[in-house]
Nucleic acid binder design. Structure first.
Lengths: 345, 345
DNA sequence: TATATTCTTGGAAGCGCTTCCAATTATTCA
DNA sequence: TGAATAATTGGAAGCGCTTCCAAGAATATA
């Protein structure tokens, strides 16, 4: 059938052990023998059998990434970082896109199959407690991205602090009637971002008002989507009249902002003249839409995630490491701050 | 160490063959025995060893997708279709994002390793001739997406016809001075779309003029990117004066259009009042930007790609099948056609 | 009841590799 | 020059599974 190391060994007049050592660049092969074997490998255009290598070596050089709604721009950009770094290390990356918790668990289980992958990256979801033990038991490296658990390596962004910075920026621009458009409070980021918003307000002695938080959970991703952003904005605008009109809004994500911008345009509300906007993420589109936003270092997070995974593989017993990034304010047009145009990014 | 079928067999008091048959739902196991084995499997929380299964069964249940610049929205949407269908069939999907031909070849070679994947999807690039033979020899299923080769299954879109339709639409709206913003003519889609543009013009007795085709190859992806679109638009606007001013432009892709819109806005050119735009792809953003565009059924293409791959696995000797989609015109604001707002998509 | 069928079952062989150990050969040191 | 050491090498064992074949058990047939 196809060429195996036995064929190579016979053809080169050496033992299979020697052939294997040649393939794996083991040092204890004489230059002469190595040359001979390499010649035969080339001549028979030998291809090692991946499954056999994996079975024998107990390494797969494969990792899996379990990502909710991976078509979301945020994940795409993180994924780009993961992908680039994986290529550099020679890992295959299995992409598991999931739409709900039960799918996520399915792929966690699948990743736990022995001999399937050497590591797992779990994105933006709460790790079910029942898997904590399993991962520890199998000692399968796991990195949480945009999530946290004390027992595992994790990478996340300071949502609360970021939201505070965003809101402070609006306060500094003179706004006091500041609303928030949020996603489902079932998600940690939404809770943290709201808390940050509240803190900034209270720092400035502006009372937090529940009726100024607009949440829509329509569509996918717990409301982190365009339709929900649009719905919330329409809701906001519909109720926005009277003396203490809202003049600014902090939106929990850029994706929602895209929808919110549509809604505002539709209803004739000008941004930033009538309504200033600051949002969160800095996806690629934010630049196009000229959104002032809190930048998350998405690509860098992806790179770091892969690095953490490889570090963990080499050193399974190191204590879990947690890295948090502080998002940074990127000022563009939507907040109404005057920016010299050459500073616009 | 970990639990193997030998442990299961011993514990359940049966042979390893029987255990294996239970695991693979082989019919010839008595209900009684099966129950007993399943109980033990559960009790010992057995996990089959993926590599061993693959080695013995010669199946990997894995496919690879080789995609240039996968963060491009076009690919993301195709990928979503692939991903959904792969999940349905129980395939693992390895994502190989590539940035140039040599990377693409590297991953083609890698995918050809025996026992690595059961099939390959190759996106939007010309398949190097040297791999034609290799794939046929190893009989590894290969599907070309947004590309074509007579020896393999392929899925593509009629770029030429689509471009003709797009240009005709502008002609029908009364424009006669119609420019085109294109990407590198090194790519087949760019050539086809330009040819379609030319055909529509000539049909209408409007002479094709080389100085009305604006091509920028800055940035990645052979000019299919935002910066290039913006540069071309700025170039166009800079030269656009006099009696036969350009009043409409056909842009080769939505991504370029996004940049073009930015450039136009920057220079105070209103779309569609001063300049009508029709472009190509219908990525998610096109809706947000209200682009009139030629819709490619991206998700459906992804789904179909996966289906073709599985069909090919079952039937390796079928003749290659080629599927082409005709893109459809989606009318939004950027072309200036009057559309009842409830018809806007 | 004896024989022919059909179900079930056990386990050896084999998938193609890595690795370890023992053996052989080459080299070094006194 | 001979013993000791180091560098190479061959190949058995083992990774954990699937599958095939032969055999035993159960059922059907006459």
């Amino acid at each position: 059938m196809s060429v195996t190391i036995y064929d190579l060994a016979r053809e080169a007049g050496v033992g299979i052990g020697t052939v294997s050592r040649c393939l794996n660049n083991h040092p204890s092969v004489s230059a002469e023998t190595r040359a001979k074997v390499l010649e035969v490998i080339k001549r028979l255009s030998y291809q090692p059998h991946a499954s056999a290598q994996r079975l024998a070596s107990k390494k797969t050089n494969t990792i899996s990434a379990i990502i909710p709604f991976f078509t979301n721009y945020f994940f795409i950009q993180v994924l780009q970082g993961v992908q680039d770094k994986a290529a550099e290390f020679g890992f295959d990356l299995i992409l598991y896109g999931v739409n709900n918790t039960s799918q996520a668990e399915y792929y966690l289980r699948r990743s736990l199959h022995r001999g399937h992958v050497d590591g797992v990256m779990f994105f933006s979801m709460k790790l079910p407690e029942s898997y904590v033990q399993k991962f520890q038991q199998i000692r399968l490296p796991l990195v949480l991205v945009d999530a946290y658990h004390p027992e595992f390596d994790s990478i996340s962004v300071k949502n609360l602090e970021g939201a505070t910075m965003a809101t402070r920026h609006l306060l500094k621009l003179g706004h006091t009637n500041i609303a928030m458009i949020n996603a489902s409070l079932a998600t940690q980021p939404a809770r943290d971002r709201m808390e940050g918003y509240r803190i900034a307000l209270e720092e400035a002695d502006v009372p937090f008002r529940n009726d100024r938080v607009f949440i829509s959970e329509i569509g996918k991703q717990d409301g982190f989507n365009r339709e929900a952003g649009r719905a919330s904005m329409e809701d906001l605008i519909g109720k926005n009249s009277g003396k203490d009109r809202v003049t600014a809004v902090f939106i929990a994500s850029d994706v929602q902002s895209m929808g919110a911008l549509e809604g505002a345009a539709e209803l004739g509300v000008r941004v930033p003249e009538d309504l200033a906007i600051v949002s969160f993420d800095d996806i690629e589109l934010a630049q196009h839409a000229q959104l002032t936003t809190m930048r998350q270092p998405m690509y860098e997070m992806g790179v770091l995630a892969l690095e953490k995974l490889t570090t963990r593989m080499k050193n399974p017993d190191a204590p879990p490491s947690q890295t948090t990034f502080l998002p940074s304010l990127v000022v563009r047009r939507s907040c109404g701050a005057r920016v010299p145009s050459e500073q616009l990014v």
